[in-house]
């Protein structure tokens, strides 16, 4: 399942997508949990009883601001969460 967390507003679309099929048997021990400097990720048991990662509720409506530190306007480095997730389950829309 691809779970999209975030929102669209007048300034753009801010979604983090997590492909939970790639996330269920994480080979890197949920490195995203510690990879994100703001600790935005957490584990949960989904509706089909699989343990996967999700974005914490408190961050879902503020992604444009909460992710801003990792996204400078120039010379943008690779995103820590994306780097940490070697199965490539995490994608950002912006």
């Amino acid at each position: 399942m691809i779970a999209n967390y975030g929102y669209k507003d007048g300034s753009g679309e801010y979604y983090i997508s997590i492909d939970t099929d790639k996330c269920i048997d994480c080979p890197v021990g949920r490195a995203c949990l510690t990879g994100c400097p703001k600790g935005m990720f957490e584990t949960m048991t989904d509706d089909y009883d699989d343990e996967v990662v999700q974005i914490k509720q408190s961050f879902r409506r503020n992604l444009a601001y909460d992710c801003a530190d990792c996204k400078p306007s120039s010379n943008r480095p690779p995103l820590p969460c994306v780097v940490a997730c070697t199965p490539a389950a995490i994608k950002h829309s912006w």
């Binding site: 999209n4 507003d9 509706d47």
Partner: peptide, 12 residues
């Protein structure tokens, strides 16, 4: 009926 992809707008 199993979800494969979802998107929610609950900000507005």
């Amino acid at each position: 009926g199993k979800v494969t992809n979802f998107l929610m707008n609950d900000k507005c």
